[in-house]
Write a protein that binds this DNA or RNA. Structure first.
Lengths: 223, 223
DNA sequence: GCAGCGCAATCTATATACAGCTATAATGCA
DNA sequence: TGCATTATAGCTGTATATAGATTGCGCTGC
């Protein structure tokens, strides 16, 4: 039959988790915002119990902070942690080739080519959410090339911890410059995939992670 | 006054978390063992709700697996993941010096010297639990030298994911050889601390992580 | 005016009853 | 006897009421 069954508990939890994580990543829930458990639970049509389970995971991942008697708020990131996370991401990217990489498939290459198209469209028209979505999809592609499960999970975690901070700087940066470099990165990554070279892929990625960190650092050093 | 107040919710959760994690790490809860929520909750004198919160965190960390309608069981680790985790640990150890290290204090040096004494005692008398405790304490010391919060958390996480597997091999390995190499490692680490050189400290650590992986690999390759 | 205390509002933490899922054993039919 | 189906026991998932923590406001007394 395969009728549209009610989703399983795991699926429901996963849906709530990804929804909230995306809202935080896209700054729809900006740092400092208080999250009301009852209200969110009602929105998802569940009780507080499963919603709290999701919030606890997000808390463990550092995206929200739960304080007894006070509330749950979206976290901010201090600049030292921001840089520390970037350093780790760069390290993980540089070693992608040696930490049991996955096989490159045509699906990867096709997805990446689609992203290049999307980046070209973004060059014409500034669109922060569009950039954030592109960024998310690229990260998913990268994780798909990491064969080491712990390295993959770590890479994903670190990305979502800083994605929103990066997004918050985006409006202040030179849009054409950012998109231009993103396009260059995507092309470089595409070339690496063409020769199925995950090692080079990671090194290209690392280069642009450094570049983006440097770009943001200018705005931070004045803190 | 500072009377012995009832511990806070966070403290109670932390206590349960660390208790269970230690039991898993020391193989008192071996891989495959089923954990009964109600029974454990009773043991800690709480209801299922806070206990489940702890189990969910352990599940997120990969130490237990929760399956709806079935139960919660201590996970096992396949050999690929085991090696992947070791590769990451080695990578993190090697870069300890460059990822914002903490300052070395006399407290660190003193603790390490105490560990050398404990290792000497273990050489006389084989004691798996004693070795596991020493190993845990060394890992805590190492984490204390990591200034990068994300790197520290990751290092800790990876350690506890493989500690029990390592412990399960310990009875099959040559005790004198293992203790001898552990002593050498501790002395090497102590020398690095003497000159406050976290970079060398990490490189020594990486060397012995490789050695231990190699030692265990012999038993695994036959799988 | 102000300092300190206490109350109330609001949030998270916990206990508990119940619903839903899964694996297994029992049962009935071919 | 063998297989499919169904009952059932035992587990996790969810809803909800209550307890506990924290903050801020307002009252009171000096």
């Amino acid at each position: 039959m395969n009728k549209p069954d009610k989703p399983s508990a795991d699926q429901r939890l996963r849906y709530m988790y990804e929804s909230i994580r995306q809202r935080i990543g896209m700054l729809h829930y900006p740092p400092g915002m208080m999250i009301n458990e009852m209200q969110l639970a009602n929105e998802f049509g569940v009780s507080r119990t499963p919603l709290r389970r999701v919030l606890q995971q997000l808390s463990y991942e550092g995206l929200v902070e739960i304080r007894n008697g006070v509330g749950t708020r979206v976290t901010d990131i201090d600049m030292k942690t921001f840089k520390d996370i970037y350093d780790l991401r760069i390290l993980l990217a540089e070693t992608m080739g040696s930490l049991s990489p996955n096989w490159v498939t045509d699906r990867h290459r096709k997805k990446l080519d689609e992203m290049i198209e999307r980046a070209r469209d973004l060059r014409e028209k500034k669109n922060i959410d569009g950039y954030a979505n592109l960024s998310n999809d690229l990260e998913a592609l990268i994780c798909d090339l990491i064969g080491s499960k712990p390295a993959r999970e770590m890479t994903d975690l670190l990305y979502y911890q800083v994605a929103r901070i990066w997004c918050s700087f985006l409006p202040n940066l030179d849009w054409d410059g950012v998109i231009g470099e993103t396009l260059e990165e995507l092309k470089g990554l595409s070339d690496a995939l063409a020769s199925s070279d995950v090692g080079t892929f990671g090194k290209v990625r690392a280069t642009y992670l450094r570049l983006m960190l440097k770009k943001v650092s200018r705005y931070i050093s004045s803190d």
